[in-house]
Amino acid sequence: MASQHFQKKSANTKQEIPTASLPDIIFMLLIFFMVSTVLRETEVMVQTRLPRAEALTKIEQKRLVSYIYIGPIQRGPNQGQTAVQIDDALIDNQNTISQIMYSKLQQQPRLIVSLRVDESSEMGIVTDVQQELRDAGTLRINYSSRQDREGTVSG
């Protein structure tokens, strides 16, 4: 009697989860990520271990930011040599930086230059790049750095 009763009950109830709306949910997630993020554009060829700092500010508008990477080259024949990278390419001649940055400034007048400099670098190369930036007129810069200690909030 009892087993018969169970069988009858399980046969009548539908045990499937409705999956018809699953694609819609996933599409919602997808659209959220597409709208709220920026595509990773470049492959970084120099090592940039960022220094730690406390007095940090956040860059809210990522679209205004242009990156300059300074650090030792990770791979290839010149491995370990300190180099400057803008966009996808390493800069051979540092005098060209001002021209590159000037053309970027024409496209985006509110340009912020984020300097992602390896903590082992020396100030010499950083100053050279800064002089080039002054020549180009891109005066808003940001020394990219990591949060000093977990939990401290400043800005």
């Binding site: 694609p23 996933i26 997630l29 920026v38 595509l39 984020s114 002054r134 005066l139």
Partner: peptide, 27 residues
């Protein structure tokens, strides 16, 4: 849809950029 979602998750940057802001003196 999942495949597309995973593609976008991998290719985008979510971390907020933090740093010390400065303004260089004009030349």
């Amino acid at each position: 849809a999942f495949l597309l979602l995973i593609f976008f998750l991998v290719t985008t940057t979510i971390d907020v950029d933090t740093g010390i802001g400065m303004t260089l003196p004009p030349k």
